[in-house]
Design a protein around this nucleic acid. Structure first.
Lengths: 210, 210
DNA sequence: TGTTGTGAAGTATTTCACAGCC
DNA sequence: GGCTGTGAAATACTTCACAACA
C-alpha cells in the first residue's frame, strides 16, 4: 500500500479493468499472465501494479475475477458516481456529452456552459446550456466535482482557475495549453494534435531508419 | 542523433513547438530556460530532448526561434502534409473532422467511412461518407497514410488490420481496445474513459492521504 | 558573461527470479 | 504443480554540474 504510484501504473489498471469487463464468466479466475496478454504488458508488471494496493490474488490460482474487478473499481475511484460539468458546447463538447461510456461509468454531466450567446439557453439532452456568469454559483449548488474543459486555449486558464476556486476536485483538459493550477487539483490533458504529431514522428523516424 | 527516443520526449517536443507558435517575435531567440518555463519541465530536460536530434543552439545565446521551429516541425514530421482517412462518422468523428487544428497542421482528411447505411452518402464539408466496402480501394487510390479510428471497440481490430493491409502507415485509435498490429505500423491510443479514471484515481488517492 | 551540450550521478520504472503458499 | 508477491538486478529516464564556446 505504498504512496507514490506511477502514472503508467494507473493507465494499466484502467486497462486491466477494461479487460475484465469483457470477461463474461464472472465467478472465474484470471492469472497475471492472461491479464498481461490482454493489456500489452508482462505478467510481472501486472503483479507489481496490483501489489501496490495490497495482495488480493491466490498463489497457485490467480485472481478472482469478481473481486479483482471490484478492487480495481475502488482503486480507480469509480465505485461511486461523479458530478461533472462540461465547459464548452462545441463539437468536442457534444461528442463528450453524448459519449455513453462516461455515463455508464458513473460520470454524470450535471451542467453545460458556453460563452456563445447563440448557444446559451439551448437544450442538449436533459441539460440547458448555461452562461459562464452562472458558473461559480452552479458549481457550488450542484456540487460539481469534475470539470471537462472543451474550449479553445485562450479561455482555458481562466476557466480552470475559476473552477479551482469554486471547489472543483479535478480537471480534464482538452485545450492545447498547460494549465497552471495548484497541485492539490489534478489535471489530465488530452491533446489531439499532440497525438497525431506523435504518430507522424514515429512514421518519419522509421522511414529514416530504413 | 541517437535512435531510441522516449515517448515522453516526443510529447515534450510537441509542447516546445506549441510554445514557439505562440511566439510573435520571430527572428528572436529562446533559451532552454524560457522553453522549460512554458513546458512544465526543466532547462536541462529541454536541452537533453533537443540534443537527441543534433545540436542546434548557440552557447551563450540560446536557440534561434525560427530555426528551432523548423527543426521541431521536421523532427515531428509535420513539415509536410499527411493524407488522413476517418473511420467512423459518429460524434467523435465529426468533432475530429471539423477540428481546425488538424487541417492547419497539415493533416488533411481525404475520406470518411461509416458502416451505418443511414450515413453512407451523406455529405460532410467536402466529403461524402463512404461504405466500408470501398475502404481498401479508396485507401490505395487516395494514397491514405493515416487512419483515425473513431468507432466502437467491436469493429476496431478488424478495421485496423484492413488499414494495415491496405498500406496505411499509422493509426490514431479512439476505440477503447489495444489494437494488435505489426510493429512497423505505429498506433497512438486516445482513451477518454481512461483519462477520467486517472483523474478520479488521483482525487481518491489524495482524499485517502488526507 | 551566458547558455549550450553532455557525461556522470541520481531516480524511477520494469524485469528477473524465486521463496512462499494454495 | 502452478501462480502470486516481492526483494534484487537491470534498464530507462531525469537531473546535475561543468567544460566548451559564442
Amino acid at each position: 500500500m505504498s504512496r507514490k504510484i506511477p502514472e503508467s501504473t494507473v493507465r494499466r489498471l484502467s486497462h486491466y479493468l477494461r479487460s475484465l469487463e469483457g470477461f463474461p464468466e464472472s465467478g472465474g479466475t484470471v492469472s497475471s499472465e492472461e491479464l498481461a496478454a490482454r493489456g500489452q504488458t508482462t505478467a510481472a508488471q501486472v503483479r507489481k501494479d496490483l501489489s501496490h494496493f495490497g495482495s488480493f490474488g491466490k498463489r497457485g490460482l490467480g485472481y478472482q475475477v469478481d473481486e479483482l474487478r471490484d478492487r480495481l473499481r475502488s482503486i480507480l475511484g469509480i465505485n461511486r458516481s461523479w458530478t461533472v460539468a462540461l465547459v464548452g458546447a462545441g463539437r468536442i463538447g457534444l461528442a463528450l456529452f453524448e459519449y455513453p461510456a462516461f455515463r455508464s461509468r458513473g460520470y454524470n454531466c450535471v451542467a453545460i456552459f458556453d460563452s456563445d450567446p447563440e448557444k446559451i439557453g439551448r437544450v442538449w439532452g436533459d441539460q440547458v446550456i448555461r452562461s459562464p456568469e452562472e458558473f461559480e454559483k452552479t458549481i457550488v449548488e450542484l456540487d460539481v466535482e469534475l470539470v471537462i474543459l472543451a474550449i479553445p486555449a485562450e479561455g482555458a486558464q481562466d476557466m480552470a482557475m475559476r473552477a479551482v476556486d469554486a471547489g472543483v476536485k479535478g480537471i480534464l483538459n482538452f485545450a492545447p495549453i498547460r494549465l497552471n493550477v495548484p497541485p492539490r487539483v489534478p489535471v489530465e490533458d488530452v491533446n489531439l494534435v499532440m497525438e497525431l504529431e506523435a504518430l507522424s514522428f514515429q512514421i518519419t523516424q522509421r522511414e529514416q531508419d530504413a
